[in-house]
Amino acid sequence: MGRAPAAGDKALGEYLSSECVTCHQLSGANVGIPPIVGWPDDSFIEIMNEYRYRKRNNSIMQTIAGRFSNDEIAALAAYFGSVKGR
């Protein structure tokens, strides 16, 4: 598996993540909305791309993912990957 060749910018990821944590809890709590912390980068990127290209259904996630660039998604993956849930 390994990490993505160009690792994402964690600082950018942390800023962008503020948008995600309104719903997805940093603690990793799973209450109606899936946790997104501590994932391997490549899984995170793959799922975001599936929303981005509308292969996965959820209008909110399609809208959110659709406006992120590759770098931004990589940055988010790096940031959330580094967060350890409680």
Binding site: V21, T22, C23, Q25, A29, V31, G32, I33, I60
Partner: peptide, 12 residues
């Protein structure tokens, strides 16, 4: 999602 959002935004 609605209930999950409430829980999430309160935590945030």
């Amino acid at each position: 999602e609605n209930m999950g959002w409430y829980s999430g935004i309160i935590a945030d």
